[in-house]
Design a protein around this nucleic acid. Structure first.
Lengths: 153, 153
DNA sequence: CCGTTTTTGTTGTATTTGCAATAATAAAAT
DNA sequence: ATTTTATTATTGCAAATACAACAAAAACGG
């Protein structure tokens, strides 16, 4: 019938390319590699904990730990201890973070526009829906493997 | 009209999650982080040069340089000097690489299947086409920025 | 042919990234 | 109530990543 549908490569290429561009452009915001990912989520989910944030963006726990600590040092994040649960530390955006947030958004929207060039509104819409579905499929598998389980194939 | 279509986040999530899984699974092939990306392209494009390969997978030139050198040291790649053009070094898969190649492919196909779960054949097909288009859009921009140019937005 | 620009590749340095191993609190089980 | 397990977070390595700066060959422009 039809050739095998391959989506891994274009997805990887798009992701690396746009991430690369973002990191270059956010240097002037004093954000180092990858930090913009954490920052926007913390702005949108104030009070989120580190573990949840790492899951959300599909990054290793330990990487998130260090990235967030650095952002706290640099005044982008405030880590508040919780009174009830002594294990967790809730993350909040600082004033500085809230100032930078719209700039990151602007960049992301521009990249998004570039990415969608030449697609009709309907195509873009469908693409988003399909990607969301794929994202969920993959997330389940990621959890599975990250917890030490072994995929059989 | 419609809400803004956002494809950056799901794409980033899918990419990081699957890359993470792949790197964990390829440890047992003695491939370190990212190397599988280079390896499959070299197998599929024997004689390709480093610069072209870096472009192909959207990775920094210097990162590719070190990754490929390491793969040469570890016996996955052979770098042959060109008789005509003394500047370039053509890359070829070793026997070891050709043995590993189908295993990487098998993993990638499995991940691809997982990703596409719940999509109809038509949906999957369209998704691939749209992603290929997006990938091209983004590639142009990546070249632009990587060459030191500044995006206006 | 000769100067200039582009292409291809490398190192220096700084940083991020992530698997292992560890710790400490919380939640669940018996 | 107390043992057991799960959750959350950190640190110790070891390694990949990438910007800057550089070099050398090739391609281009006159």
């Amino acid at each position: 019938m039809s050739i095998i549908v391959e989506i891994l490569r274009p997805i990887g290429n798009i992701s690396r390319a746009l991430d690369s561009i973002a990191n270059i452009e956010f240097k002037e915001l004093a954000l180092s590699k990858g930090q913009y990912l954490y920052l926007v989520r913390i702005c949108e989910h104030p009070g989120i904990i580190q573990e949840r944030l790492a899951e959300m963006i599909k990054v290793d726990r330990t990487t998130a730990s260090r990235a967030i600590r650095k952002m706290a040092t640099n005044g982008f994040v405030e880590r508040r201890s919780d009174n009830i649960n002594k294990k967790i530390r809730r993350l909040f955006p600082t004033e500085k973070a809230n100032q930078v947030y719209p700039l990151i958004n602007r960049e992301n929207l521009y990249s998004n526009d570039v990415a969608l060039q030449g697609l009709s509104a309907e195509e873009a819409d469908l693409l988003e829906k399909l990607l969301t579905k794929v994202s969920k499929n993959v997330a389940t598998n990621w959890d599975f493997v990250k917890k030490g389980n072994h995929r059989e194939y």
